[in-house]
Amino acid sequence: MELHGYFRSSASYRVRIALNLKGLQYDYQPVNLLKGEQRGDEHRKLNPQGLVPALVDGTTILTQSLAILEWLDDQYPEPALLPKDPLARARVRAMAYGIACDIQPIQNLRVLQYLQSEYGISDEEKVNWIRHWIHEGFSALEQQLDPTPFAAGDQPGLFECCLIPQIYSAERFGMDIAEYPAIHRTMLACNEIPAFVEARPENQPDSTL
């Protein structure tokens, strides 16, 4: 199994966490987003969108992080990323999608580059944009999270795979996660789990390239 990704990519980070939680071995293939390698012909053979990640398992090629996470859950059911109860599954998905579909995409590298190249926003305006949309999303999540360590109860899953990379991004841009007590509680619990620690961007081979 190969994971083609970038160390700071939130979507790649999600998949790393899930692979680690399930104890799956994989070869990591770096794709340098800042150098535009994601738009090269070789990578587009794996992901025609020119995005990361791409997961290759034999002749199977999968893209889009949430689709990859759900496929992993189908193929390798234990430990599960989603609860068995349908209502609980829907609730966890809603919160995970709130990050992966509503918060992260509008702070994606290509979106920020477009805003700067086409509309001339400054670095300060870019940071304010990022902080604004993360705050909007995190404020909503605070109202949805129960007072348990994880969204599904006693073990991390799909939601935490999405939340922790988004926290990393928030902290990169100077946000204080302690201002969001429920999110902060989940972060502290995840920080104690090796699967999350090993997936951190600074622990990836391309973080020093």
Results as ranks from 00 to 15, higher is better:
Q64V: 08
Q64E: 15
Q64P: 03
L66A: 14
L66H: 15
A67D: 15
A67T: 15
L69V: 05
L69Y: 08
W71V: 07
Q75G: 11
P77D: 02
P77Q: 06
P77H: 08
P79K: 08
A80P: 01
A80E: 07
L82Y: 02
P83D: 10
P83G: 12
P83K: 06
D85N: 14
P86K: 11
L87A: 10
A88Q: 13
R89C: 00
A90I: 03
V92N: 01
R93E: 03
A96F: 02
A96E: 04
Y97G: 13
Y97C: 12
G98T: 14
G98K: 12
A100P: 06
C101G: 14
I103C: 06
Q104F: 07
Q104L: 01
Q104K: 02
I106V: 15
I106D: 10
Q107N: 12
N108R: 05
V111A: 11
Q113D: 10
S117W: 02
E118I: 04
Y119D: 09
Y119W: 13
G120K: 00
D123C: 07
E124L: 08
E125Q: 13
K126Y: 02
K126H: 09
K126V: 06
V127P: 04
N128M: 14
N128P: 00
W129A: 07
W129S: 02
R131I: 04
W133H: 10
H135N: 14
H135W: 11
E136I: 11
F138E: 03
F138T: 01
A140C: 10
A140D: 12
L141C: 07
L141A: 08
E142K: 01
E142R: 06
Q143A: 14
Q144A: 12
Q144I: 11
L145G: 10
L145P: 03
P149N: 15
F150C: 05
F150L: 06
A152W: 05
P156A: 02
G157V: 06
F159Q: 04
F159E: 00
E160I: 05
C161F: 03
C161S: 04
C162F: 00
P165K: 02
Q166S: 09
S169V: 11
A170I: 02
E171C: 05
E171Y: 10
G174I: 04
G174K: 09
M175G: 06
I177W: 05
A178S: 15
E179Y: 08
Y180S: 00
P181E: 05
P181F: 01
P181A: 01
I183V: 15
I183Q: 01
I183P: 00
I183F: 03
H184V: 08
